[in-house]
Design a protein around this nucleic acid. Structure first.
Lengths: 231, 231
DNA sequence: TATAAATATTGAATAGTATCAATTATATTA
DNA sequence: TAATATAATTGATACTATTCAATATTTATA
């Protein structure tokens, strides 16, 4: 706790997102007063699909994966969420429930902001609202890609899509592959774990990727894109 | 044209959506001045995935299907859009291009509203903006369902999902099945046309649905939901 | 209405993918 | 570190779904 409390005030937060930059000091202070900060350990569920959503969550520091849980007990991974990203934005106006689950893939500090407070700021600050809407749109695009991948491609194309996405995430500051199991990758591609393992080996033998344990490097991104394109 | 011009003014439009109800007369008049009305024939493409999006489209009267086109030449159907729904809202803040294609499934009157004008009203009228954001959220939920269906279910579950969606659409004022080919249904379910036909027959033999040519009736919605649930 | 074109249906063959079981490698914990 | 648990890999098999080809049916058009 002591270690957390240092960075507990929003306006002192070094991890402030582009969204929060749109807020005035008083708005930021208002948010600060209506939030709680929590530490989630690797593997812990942060929010659960279907649960009542009274807060908007903000990743103050960490690495989180979002996923959908199907009625037949499978998971489809949606995104890797990083420091300074929001969770559960669409619950603000929607059903009041989380539409997907999230889990910490490494120890993560999460700010929980009361939804009503968040909404208040959103209504009063058009700039902030615009930024949020922009976020929605980008997000939608990624969902379309997912639908195309799952709906119109077979194994090779689907794994290529997953690797392209994950590799792009991996290239930024923090490496993510060390935190992902084969099962995680499989759930990004919408494949069984075994098929994923087999295909990864195939890609490796074709010098498309390099594998050292969990670490995966893309050697031939163009070919990977071509495989994605062909489906 | 003569037939169209009668209902060309926004404030006289009988097909005004819940969104437009949020606008003041002057705002409505502003939109009116910055729009064009066009008639699309059945089968015509209304907007094309990837094309530059300078307008927000509004279905003044008609029936439209939205779909994604994959790089390997397949289509995945997303939604049936009806009178008083928007097309291309997410291009307002996003990439400036349409992220999906739409085609008229029957003759449809479409209003094309200059994006910049739409944006102007959106920025100045928070109520209107709220309504639009709410629309985004509902939409996102449907995309999650699609991802779950395509990513975690096999044929029976996927067709059940498609039929449940289409049947719900069908129940409203206008019947939609007469406008849909087996191929269309297949593209909603993410299946081949032949598999779709075979499964439809199977569902019919199991008294889950009734088929008379294009007309499809759901006889046992609970069983259909159960099939969807089990995947 | 007759004819042509498009759509729907069915069967058989093939390709694609998951599942199960066994084994090996890696990570965790006493 | 040894023991145990978890994750990764591989092979064989069974299942799922598409494709191709042929036929029937419906729709559109001259």
């Amino acid at each position: 706790m002591g270690n957390l409390s240092e960075s507990t005030k929003c306006h002192e937060c070094k991890k402030s997102s582009k969204y929060f930059k749109r807020l005035s000091p008083s708005e930021l202070e208002f948010i600060n007063q209506n939030k709680t900060q929590l530490l989630y350990r690797k593997g812990e569920t942060i929010c659960k699909q279907g649960a009542f959503a009274s807060d908007v969550l903000y990743i103050s520091d960490g690495l989180v994966s979002s996923y959908l849980e199907s009625s037949n007990n499978r998971h489809i991974n949606l995104k890797i969420l990083k420091t300074s990203e929001f969770i559960g934005l669409s619950s603000i106006y929607g059903d009041n429930i989380y539409n997907y689950s999230t889990a910490a893939i490494k120890d993560s500090t999460i700010c929980m902001i009361k939804k009503e407070s968040f909404k208040k700021v959103l209504t009063s600050n058009g700039d902030f609202a615009s930024e949020i809407i922009k976020g929605y749109c980008e997000n939608e695009n990624q969902l379309f890609n997912k639908i195309l991948s799952l709906g119109s491609k077979q194994m090779h194309g689907r794994l290529a899509d997953a690797l392209i996405y994950l590799y792009n995430q991996n290239m930024q500051e923090e490496k993510i592959f060390p935190y992902l199991s084969r099962k995680d990758i499989a759930e990004f591609a919408g494949l069984s774990t075994e098929s994923t393992v087999r295909l990864l080996t195939e890609f490796k033998n074709d010098n498309i990727i390099d594998i050292r344990g969990k670490e995966i490097k893309v050697l031939n991104p163009d070919l990977l894109k071509e495989i994605s394109r062909r489906g």
